[in-house]
Amino acid sequence: MVKDPWWLHAYWEVDPSRERQTRSQAPPEEIGGMQSILRVYNVTHRRFPDEPPNGSFDISLSGLANHWYIQADNPGHEFIVDIGLLTTSGRFLLLARSNRVTTPRVGPAEWMDETLKAHLAGALSSASVRARATHH
């Protein structure tokens, strides 16, 4: 889920048997140091996973977490988040994949409809977002 232009929220529920099964894919010597992580992919305009993401970053999870607020810091972009296990050798074992979300863009768009450009009066753009009165 998107919380605002900069933050995402992910929650999950992993079936323990699925996790055991995934864990067993790793060679025995790597099972000990395995770490649960979120892998956050920037998939803007990408047909992920058929196409590679524009970039990604990992978040290490503490043991019992079942949700996380993710600072993506990237308004106007698309994200997909994986939860999985990272082995000591850097292998990533996927447990579950999120839906795709898009953060909203902030600030007035650069792109103006050319036929309308001439009409745009300066005073109107100054109506851009001021501090909003707090609701309720």
Binding site: P104, R105, V106, G107, P108, A109, E110, W111, M112, D113, L116, H119, L120, L124, S125, A127, S128, V129, R132
Partner: peptide, 18 residues
Amino acid sequence: TDAHGVLFGSPRPKYGVY
């Protein structure tokens, strides 16, 4: 929508929210 819903729309709204 709230003001920024329109103002941050793309392409830029010619008349703002008016």
